[in-house]
């Protein structure tokens, strides 16, 4: 189970009225390398990973939900006061037709989230390498998002999230090192 803290992991401030940025940010909400996919991937894989590294998947999977909330907050702030005209001009007309201003798990192109974005091979090496790749892909997505806005406040939150992806990738690399070690080998000194 989880204990919920009623606050964001890191402050989210949005200073520029730019509903189009919401359309791009949704990639990290319901995209293939987004936070939802990350959280569900790790929290699902943790059952069949060696005991020594379950905690890594558990903790990082949990943190991804905190990141999901931050992205949701950005999208909500960018769209809540937008008129229908502004949403249409921002390329969100198709979204509005289906969802009004509700958030939805979809990528920047409007493709709904699907479980086929995530994998669970049951092989610890294969799963951890997928996780490392997922973190680097999310890091790259954050870079392209930072590139597309000149709102320094959104950039600040996105840079925090990007750094977290980098740290997560290190932790998964360390997890690989831990499971590579052959603990059954008797060492005689």
């Amino acid at each position: 189970m989880w204990i919920y803290e009623k606050k964001l992991q890191y402050p989210v401030r949005v200073s520029k009225c730019d509903p189009m940025m919401a359309k791009f940010l949704i990639e990290q909400y319901g995209g293939a390398d987004g936070e939802l996919a990350a959280a569900l991937r790790y929290l699902n894989q943790r059952y069949t990973i060696p005991d020594k590294v379950i905690g890594v998947l558990n903790d990082i999977g949990t943190e991804e939900f905190a990141h999901l909330e931050m992205i949701a907050t950005m999208v909500y702030k960018l769209t809540k006061d937008a008129t229908v005209d502004q949403l249409q001009a921002a390329g969100l007309g198709a979204h509005y037709a289906n969802h009004d201003k509700a958030l939805y798990y979809e990528n920047a192109s409007g493709v709904p989230w699907t479980a086929s974005y995530i994998n669970a091979k049951g092989d610890p090496i294969a799963d951890l390498y997928e996780d490392i790749a997922a973190e680097e892909k999310a890091r790259a997505t954050y870079q392209w998002l930072i590139d597309m806005t000149d709102d320094v406040d959104i950039q600040d939150s996105l840079k925090f999230l990007r750094e977290r992806e980098i740290i997560h990738a290190i932790r998964f690399r360390e997890a690989v090192e831990i499971i590579k070690e052959d603990r059954a080998t008797r060492k005689i000194f």
Partner: peptide
């Protein structure tokens, strides 16, 4: 976003 200066990665927007 990290406790350790040696693990910090800066990024500057291309825009």
């Amino acid at each position: 976003g990290t406790l350790w200066p040696s693990l910090y990665s800066p990024y500057v927007s291309r825009k």
